[in-house]
Nucleic acid binder design. Sequence first.
DNA 1: AACGGACGCAACCGCATAACT
DNA 2: AAGTTATGCGGTTGCGTCCGT
Length: 241
Amino acid sequence: MVQQEMRKGPWTEQEDIKLVSFVGLFGDRRWDFIAKVSGLHRTGKSCRLRWVNYLHPGLKRGKMTPQEERLVVELHSKWGNRWSRIARKLPGRTDNEIKNYWRTHMRKKAQEKKRAAATLSPSSPESSKSSTGEESFNDSGGPNDMVSSTGIQIGEDQACEQESYSMEDIWKDISVSEENNILGPVFDVQSELGCNLSCPLMPSPSWDYSSDSLWVMDEEESKIFNPVFPFYEQGTPFLTG
DNA sequence: AACGGACGCAACCGCATAACT
DNA sequence: AAGTTATGCGGTTGCGTCCGT
């Protein structure tokens, strides 16, 4: 058997269009099937990823808001690197996005903090975090059974035990600059944040907090969505190719 | 204006787990 | 119950862009 060569790398606009229309037809499951019948020479895995991280109509794009930042920090301190789980609490944000965000922004924060600590007290225990000078932001878990400072009861099951550096400390850094942004209860997050920045056609209720699935597209949505991109017309940066 | 490093993000990979037969 | 396949997740990498020198 000659296996069809699978495409890799960045998606083209044509591929995006094709994928979206086939997801509209068959739903956002059965990715191998979609990959096959669509004629995209992509793996099902790749199709799913593209959909979840980029093409899904409910995606919010652009900078994290201070509220979102805060929530990410809170939840990460509770759950550690459970990105998908954290993402479920942040409508419109993907695990990938949050993961990337954490790696970049939090590293920066941690480094800043480290630097500040070093100037204040050269022999600060802070310097024992990592022999390489890199904070271990990669694998941090947080204090367990934490009731967040925002009044959010986050805990629901196992928390990650390990704590590589104090999220509280980092958060203090953040809150210093964003002192006045008080986040409401976590379940207000939807109204608090909204999710229609880049997708005005998608009503907020498309977020499904109760289900484990990432974002479920209901019938209404698929009707709107299929087979062309309504949002594409909005001049949103959805398709960059 | 050119260059190099840092940053941000999309995408891939490997593994784990759920679902199905 | 065991084997197989599909899906989900977390870690990592590659590349384009931005910014300072």
